[in-house]
Nucleic acid binder design. Structure first.
Lengths: 181, 181
DNA sequence: GTCTATAAAAAGATAGAC
DNA sequence: GTCTATCTTTTTATAGAC
């Protein structure tokens, strides 16, 4: 029973198809598990699945993004490290952001608080790095928000234009945020 | 038979719930039309509806955004005008972008070409304004893409954080794009 | 052009065997 | 922990009256 692999597959499905679009049939087919087996692991159905996926996502954020950003090397290197992780998370810009996808439709009502929380943690972490780089508190917070927004927007644009370049350029811009001081 | 009003309602539903999330029951309830009546107007079901909505959206883009941007007043004013229209389109940041929403799941396969086309026209229009403002061609194209991306991203962030400010700030930044030359 | 009624298909969910 | 089989509900779609 490799639950982590299962959750990774669910993450993949939900971010690709959205909450309503990821049907039990699709999930069953993609994971190779029958519907009854899925209900064994997640008695509450899709809602339970997404909650598990979001929990996994929170841990991933903490381990792969937030922790490295609290390290003691210089701010510029920490942003660079973050961009490398982000690039890996979204597979170079091929993939949607789970959090953005789950803000749609009925899913928003169900998972909004968790999503908001993750976004806030991420923004706060970037802002702290920028402050350490010498940027004034309020400006740093705004630049951090803009960085997250530009990542989200670049993912949409990349999907819309069939071109990964906008996403890659965004990552380059973020890396240089505290470089041009 | 006010077909425009109907299409506006459909636009509203699809950008709020997504393609799979906007079920015929919801559509019937929201528009006040029975399912059979909906099939009378759109024999091909939801796919027909979205195509009509996208066509409406293309016209809106041309009339409210692209045309004013080809006007002869100064570049800075044209960006300002665009931002006013964009603010109205997304209701100050409360609403999702239809194009972004339709890039998810199965909908992407169905409507991708139209979406790509609209995005390209919009980007090109912004780039032309920036070129007229004296920005070099290639830089102008990149800034235009970044502008669209930041709008899309700001919409997601605004929804995620329950705070319209990121979206309003983005519009302010875009207005100033060719102001600081 | 809209409705009621209904059919067909798919999605969500559970029982019980192994 | 997974499966087959089944059930319920919802979604999509159509027929035919008005």
């Amino acid at each position: 029973m490799n639950k982590e692999k299962l959750i990774l597959q669910l993450l993949e499905l939900f971010r690709r198809y959205g909450y309503e679009g990821a049907t039990l049939s699709k999930i069953s087919q993609f994971t190779g598990l029958g519907k009854a087996s899925l209900y064994h692991h997640f008695p509450g159905g899709k809602e339970d699945m997404v909650n598990a996926v979001l929990e996994y996502s929170e841990n991933w954020l903490e381990e792969k993004i937030l922790k490295p950003m609290r390290a003691q090397n210089n701010p510029s290197d920490r942003l660079k490290e973050m961009c490398a992780r982000v690039n890996e998370l979204y597979q170079g810009g091929e993939q949607c952001c789970l959090l953005g996808v789950l803000l749609l439709g009925e899913a928003r009502d169900l998972f909004h608080e968790k999503i908001k929380n993750s976004l806030k943690l991420w923004i706060e972490a970037i802002a702290e790095v920028l402050v350490e780089a010498g940027i004034e508190e309020q400006i740093a917070r705004e630049q951090a928000e803009d960085a997250i927004a530009s990542i989200q927007g670049a993912l949409i644009l990349a999907r819309g234009l069939d071109d990964l370049e906008p996403f890659q350029r965004t990552l380059r811009q973020i890396k240089e945020l505290c470089y041009k001081l």
